[in-house]
Design a protein around this nucleic acid. Structure first.
Lengths: 212, 212
DNA sequence: GCGTAACCTTACGCAGGAGTAGGTATGCTC
DNA sequence: GAGCATACCTACTCCTGCGTAAGGTTACGC
């Protein structure tokens, strides 16, 4: 029987990556629960027991996806935003790397941001990653503040950083749904909002609620 | 058999609200798929067939939750941000209403923001709601711009509005996880970031990427 | 050339959970 | 107080999809 000449045999490392690719694609569209292991196996061009043999249960497979995509994303950002640059330059490079990455890995982004957030066992994983990002941004702001001889409460700083990260994520999500949009231009827009606001804050300008 | 004297009979409208309350609570914790109709029924103090009789299938039940919580949220914001106020005042009141609502309806927020986003059939629903919000914010910015004799491209405006909404959502999510945090204070922090940045933009200040 | 290990398959067991059938109790109307 | 509609229940059916058992096939070392 040589109708379909039984696909080539491949070394484990290669197959694992193929499986992860397929899993990310399927998870991104269907979500964790609605995705079936059969569909993932088929998308990977392999049979189901192979997936179990190499990557473990469905949950472990999802975590593996999360780790791979998350690590790649963080590496892209960290690689771009060298710590010895001035704050605005660092922010700019980080943002550009971020949006470029999302533009080039829409599925991975969808898994990280849309699917993993709500599902009980995975949310913590993502939260930790975001936490590291927030810390970096907050550290950047703090550094810039001290350079200007000013100081701001830790929580305030953290919350501002959180807002900036959130805005970026949100724009990234917009980008993921608009394939025609330019990542670099999106990064510029984000930079406009983020930096102009942050810059004001750094100068000591603040807004206060009306007394009424 | 009067061990548990079979709970009181209640009119349909009341039971429906109890069921929705329970559903929102369960969906917010477990997500759409992981939540079981049995658990929801039990949380509502009722048996499963009643849920089907009143609210329909699981999917319809989820949509009903989405609608109720979404409508409440939008009403809270719209009721606070009267269109005849100056832009900053409007933004401030809208934000305050938003964060107050989220602080008081954490479960509803979790369903809207964490659970409904990824799941295929529901994401569109939420996207539409967010779209309306973005439009309102963009309209506000546009109005403020014209009042200062300036004008900005539609896409630019929309993207900035999107970023502001995203940052707010993100902070709201932070708030949902920090019961001790004060909604009003969070709103003030958000206003600081949003308005200072927006204000700069309105004045025509922009940031440009370095030529390098 | 032959054992052995790694790669890969078909075919199944089994659990959990969506949705329903069919029946019971309670209040409301006249 | 008979009849009817509405509120409510227990106890099923059936399907989907996770995870596995048991067996075939290709490469590689010696």
């Amino acid at each position: 029987m040589s109708g379909t000449p039984t696909f080539k045999r491949l070394p484990r490392a290669v197959r694992e990556q193929q499986m992860l690719d397929a899993a990310v694609r399927v998870f991104s569209r269907r979500g964790f629960h609605a995705a079936s292991m059969d569909e993932i196996a088929e998308a990977a061009g392999i049979s189901k027991p192979m997936v179990y043999a190499y990557l473990g249960t469905k949950e472990e497979l999802f975590v593996a996806c999360l780790h791979r995509e998350g690590t790649r994303l963080m590496a892209a950002i960290a690689g771009a935003a060298a710590p010895d640059l001035p704050a605005d330059e660092r922010l700019w490079r980080g943002l550009r790397a971020f949006f470029t990455f999302v533009g080039a890995h829409r599925d991975g982004w969808a898994v990280l941001y849309r699917q993993a957030r709500g599902e009980r066992p995975f949310a913590a994983e993502v939260a930790t990653m975001r936490g590291r990002l927030v810390e970096v941004v907050a550290g950047m702001l703090d550094h810039a503040l001290r350079a200007r001889g000013r100081e701001v409460g830790g929580t305030d700083l953290e919350v501002v950083a959180y807002a900036l990260v959130g805005a970026s994520e949100s724009l990234a999500d917009w980008l993921a749904d608009h394939p025609e949009a330019d990542p670099e231009k999106t990064a510029t827009r984000m930079m406009n909002v983020a930096w102009l606001g942050a810059d004001q804050l750094l100068r000591g300008v603040t807004w206060r609620p009306p007394e009424a």
